[in-house]
């Protein structure tokens, strides 16, 4: 593959993310990887549901007493918006507009960072209340499920930062287009997982 080949918006392929065999492989492979990730999170959800509100005798923490929806609502808003901004970035990827794509990716990253900061605040808050990782089955299952999601967000942030930095000087080509595109797939995926966490852990926790 020739990295120096210059494109114009007219010669840029409609689907730059899968224009070469290598790109097609990465595209399909990443979808399959997300399939495996789905099973991973499904297992964590099942474990959480089995252990929800369970603890040693005299355990006083419950989902109703612990969770506060306003904070989680703001987190949800941040992450869902970041998914939208990553769609804008992909729109500009297809239009061969590198600067605008980078801009939207930076915005995506900052929204993700905001989400992660609030999640850390949330965890610290719970720990201060005495809801520590090792105090019950409920707390272990909760931190493992939500923490695994948070870890995925953190990995995504490192990933996109490296991508933005690495490609800042050289613009789009058919080699890095797939990298940006798979990042956006990944970002949508952790967004979808969050929708489930929001529903199953927080909403059903507060209401149910």
């Amino acid at each position: 593959m020739d990295l120096n080949k210059k494109f114009t918006p007219e010669t840029w392929p409609d689907h730059p993310e899968r224009a070469t065999l290598e790109a097609k492989n990465k595209f399909v492979g990443f979808w399959l990887f997300l399939g495996g990730e789905t099973i991973l999170f499904a297992t964590l959800f099942a474990t959480y549901l089995a252990l929800k509100n369970k603890g040693p005798s005299g355990f006083e923490f419950t989902t109703q007493g612990l969770f506060e929806l306003p904070l989680v609502f703001v987190m949800t808003l941040l992450l869902l918006t970041s998914s939208l901004t990553s769609v804008y970035a992909m729109y500009h990827l297809r239009n061969y507009d590198f600067k605008k794509m980078q801009l939207w990716l930076v915005i995506t990253a900052f929204l993700g960072l905001g989400f992660l900061a609030l999640e850390m605040y949330e965890f610290v808050h719970y720990v201060k209340l005495g809801f520590t990782y090792d105090n019950s089955a409920f707390s272990s299952a909760f931190y493992t499920l939500v923490g695994t999601h948070g870890f995925h967000v953190a990995v995504g942030l490192v990933w996109i930062t490296l991508l933005i930095y690495r490609n800042s000087k050289r613009g789009l080509n058919l080699y890095n287009a797939t990298k940006f595109y798979t990042f956006s797939l990944y970002w949508h995926f952790i967004d979808v997982v969050w929708v489930f966490i929001f529903t199953v852990v927080y909403l059903m926790g507060v209401i149910g």
């Binding site: 474990t47 089995a50 252990l51 990782y133 019950s136 089955a137 493992t144």
Partner: peptide, 16 residues
Amino acid sequence: FGGNFFDHTMGGNTII
């Protein structure tokens, strides 16, 4: 790391 998933005295469930 101090987790409790399978230990029933901490609310866990070994069948998981």
